[in-house]
Amino acid sequence: MTDEIKTPVQFIDVEEDFSGQRIDNFLLARLKGIPKSVIYRVLRKGEVRVNKKRIKPEYKLQPGDQVRVPPFTLSPEPEKEPVSTSLSIVKNLEQHILYEDNELIVLNKPSGMAVHGGSGLSFGVIEALRALRPTARHLELVHRLDRDTSGCLLIAKKRSVLTHLHEQLRNKTVEKKYWALVAGQWDSKIKKVTEPLRKNTLQSGERVVKVDEVQGKPSETRFKILQRYVEGTLVEAFPVTGRTHQIRVHTACKGHAIACDDKYGDNEFTSQMQSLGLNRLYLHAKTLSFTHPGTGKEIRCDAPLDKPLSAVLEKLTRK
């Protein structure tokens, strides 16, 4: 096709921060938009060279290595948002930074903003932050939040920091607590939900998660009641595991769906909350605690509720 784009051969010098990273993961992170299957194919064919030699996908990079990346043929990109729209997103995001130093950023992610481009979106949080911090060349998401969920999102500025924080996530020493407004009166005896969850990806690409006692993965969310209202309950959710849509499905399976959840929600409760002015999912990553990879000190960030979330609470009747 005449409108296809062919990238030039690249020669990349490996910096200290990428020491020990596998070549396949190095390429997957850098070659956004190139299918995973294509990257592994050029590795197998020996088109990727390190120091002019063929290497295997599991080769671990060393400082000073030079990586030759072969040319790729790309299809034209989908039409992107106008530049003015992108600039306004970037400018607005600066106001949502809760904590920042030379190694990481904690952001109070707005609801309605995807963490990264894709699925028809060319601009997400990580793209905006890269535009906002052009000198931070290795910005990467440490974890993700659903597009409609707001609150604490952790971003690493260095690969060594990313690796350290991923280890904390695996060891479950990162503590993430969410606030959710749910339908009905939450039973105070329900302090823990452990229904196993199975993720299905529909033909459209939409992800749907269901409780599945046979094929589901072990999942655990701990709950605490923050405030009872006549109309519903404000709960704090602490996900011990990190399954897709975990809190949304765990609340719904107990008969207490989250307000304005368009996938697992209670239509009657959602309509009631919409009549009070709520037009977004009431799920917010309120606090985030972790050990700073550089200083070893505990960092705890608290993300204030946005106006739609705080405003609806004021209209509810406390019990």
Results as ranks from 00 to 15, higher is better:
T2C: 05
E4P: 00
V9P: 03
Q10A: 10
I12A: 01
F18T: 01
G20S: 02
R22V: 01
L31E: 00
P35F: 02
V42D: 01
R44A: 08
G46H: 10
N51E: 03
P70N: 04
E100Q: 15
A114V: 15
I126N: 14
A131V: 10
A131I: 07
P134I: 05
P134R: 09
V142F: 00
H143D: 07
D148W: 08
T149D: 03
G151H: 11
H164I: 01
V174K: 09
K176C: 10
K177E: 14
Y178H: 10
Y178D: 12
A180P: 02
A183R: 10
S188H: 06
K189S: 15
E195M: 00
E195C: 00
R198I: 00
K199A: 15
G205Q: 09
E206D: 12
E213Y: 13
E236K: 09
V240E: 10
R248A: 08
R248P: 07
H256R: 03
A257Q: 06
C260H: 07
D266P: 08
R280V: 04
L281K: 07
L283R: 08
T287V: 09
P293L: 01
G294R: 13
T295V: 06
D302Q: 10
L305W: 09
L309Y: 02
S310F: 02
V312S: 09
T317C: 06
